[in-house]
Design a protein around this nucleic acid. Structure first.
Lengths: 209, 209, 209, 209
DNA sequence: GATGAATGAGGATTCATTCAT
DNA sequence: AATGAATGAATCCTCATTCAT
């Protein structure tokens, strides 16, 4: 129904539509907080049964949503193998600020929803953490070997956490946290924080550049 | 555990029991993922109806759980008005590592569960953020005024995020993240990170002290 | 709701009512052919949910129906330990002709509905078969030892089969098979058949006596 | 197996395949206990819709299954117009023991599944009962005219019942009831029983002959 | 303070069937 | 002859909640 396919055929118009609305709902309310009925309705299906033609069950749909959502993150990370930490942060912020559902989706999936679900997320995030290791190592900083996972995980929290829990941020900041200005502020903050954490602290003139 | 009964026997033994099991369930599965029936059963009640004698409804129970859970956090923070950032981190880590459900509860409540729920959490966290401002200001560091909320929020992510999403951390660290050793490592990491972020970066010999 | 209890209280008015209507439905259409909704409606419940207060699920209800239905059969058999085969047949026919649902229930449960269901029936019928062995043995007839199960099972088929599949009998008999006359005819037939099968064949003047 | 295609290749290979798997399923679980989806899947169809190309609906499929299943029984009976009862029993046992699904199919259809379904079975069984009448009449036995339907129906129960409810027989017999030995035992039992029931009781030396 | 019973609404999933391709 | 997609209705069962006891 949606004019998805730009050039070739539309391999799964309905399926993608379902994924879209499911992504939104799951990000907002979590797996248990969303009903298949709602998703089907949002997708314009006259009946929940139609949804089951595309996904075996609710869980399969959820996994598909997560996997599809993680893919671009993985790509962003993969593409940035040789980039500086600052550049990677730039790319991630660009991506996350345009896909505001994604961080919450990841955040939720990381909280529970069964071990298997978490493993999907964990697996998808692994390259992110590894790139964290790399970047850190490249920086030849003073952290000990055993600190690296903690540092890497901390950076993850800093980068994704802002967008994931943005609503908790709202009451403590003057300007709306989703505004362009606030995001740019966060971008600069992240880069400086990164620079400081990575050691070489004097280099924190990095700024936006 | 029931810190209520001052005179009579245990006026709310059951109530506290319900809160205990509800806290566990809500932390693990979120508001929508838990049924009143389950909580009642966990609490040893033979009937869900009994639960309604203590709480108006599921939501009221949830709010009570959150409020009860937040109280000690607020206390920890309140008590630390004049402490150094390092001491506050120490206290928070001590508390969070002993109450592993709490961070997940907060993390979840911060994700959604309706605006009013979030406001409970946000309200409870406000002193934490303010103490962040204070500490930062005291440190007279180079951050600009407008960065302070971002920094404050970032510290919150770093401190609570480790425990909240500890299961995401598992696959990327050699030793179990809930182990004593890992928690001490995280403590030291946090303090160093804090020192670096707070400026005065050269002082990062802080270590555990 | 139903005035079940004649003297004492009504320990489970609703429960028994549900069992009654379920028995009827299950006997007529089998486990898979009946919906919980139908049973609940028949029982005067405004909602299927009420049914689940009395039975864990559909299967538990089914088992309860079967167990309750089998009980009197077992009793009839147990009471007839010292009776002649003719008397036992009399009692069984009396019972079955007054409880027309029971034989179909047993017949169905014996067909499938999972092994566990069949085992309930099989277990309940065991005394019947054993009494068959006994009676046969008492008759000192010419059957070989190994024939006894077959003979016993055959008698079961003859006795219960008439009532269970009475509708198949309809097109081949002049008078309605559920009529008093037809049942008496079947009674006499069964006794004669029994006498002949049991050997001592000359005694088949037995008649109704 | 497809006795249809006289000229073209296999005009209904799929149709017969569907009938095969449907026969199995229906025999095992009854009309209501089987889904079209299952049958289609068993038949290797990728889609249930394909099934509807061969059968108008589920009921039509069921009727086709029953009719196809009954055909050889009718044949066996028809061919045996001039045979002795012993021979007929032999043929029926031969057939039924090789087609173990058939008796259950008939047994089930005889229990309910709407009057029209039963009428199919009743109609198909009519010759069997009539041959019962004939054989009995030929035997000039002592049964009264009005007993004949009962006797005829009883023989039907004895012959088909063993195979139909064989699982109820299992717990009361030492050797597996589907084993060659048990079936031969049942064959001999049936013949002797028949001889005894048919009168001429002294002739029960009949044995296997 | 606790419980058995009941209930309306909704949960996920499957049903048999149709239609365009 | 077969299939992908869709759908209305129904499946079993659980939801949170109330009320009389």
């Amino acid at each position: 129904m949606p004019a998805v396919g730009d050039e070739a055929a539309q391999p799964t118009a309905t399926r993608d539509l379902i994924l879209d609305v499911a992504e939104k709902r799951f990000a907002e309310h979590g797996f248990a907080g969303v009903s298949v009925r709602q998703i089907a309705a949002d997708a314009g299906l006259k009946n929940q049964a139609s949804l089951y033609h595309h996904f075996k069950n609710k869980r399969a749909l959820y996994e598909a949503v997560i996997q599809r959502g993680m893919a671009p993150v993985i790509e962003v990370i993969a593409r940035s193998k040789s980039e500086t930490a600052g550049e990677i942060i730039d790319h991630l912020i660009d991506h996350l600020s345009e896909k505001p559902l994604l961080p919450r989706l990841i955040w939720r999936a990381g909280l529970d929803e069964s071990e298997e679900l978490r493993s999907i997320v964990a697996h998808a995030l692994r390259p992110l953490f590894e790139m964290g290791f790399d970047a850190i190592s490249r920086a030849r900083l003073e952290w000990e070997e055993e600190d690296l996972p903690h540092l890497s995980f901390g950076l993850f929290q800093l980068i994704f956490g802002y967008f994931a829990q943005i609503s908790l941020f709202e009451p403590i900041t003057p300007n709306p946290p989703r505004s362009r200005a606030a995001i740019e502020r966060q971008r600069r903050f992240l880069k400086r924080a990164n620079a400081r954490l990575m050691g070489r602290p004097r280099v924190d003139k990095t700024g936006t550049g």
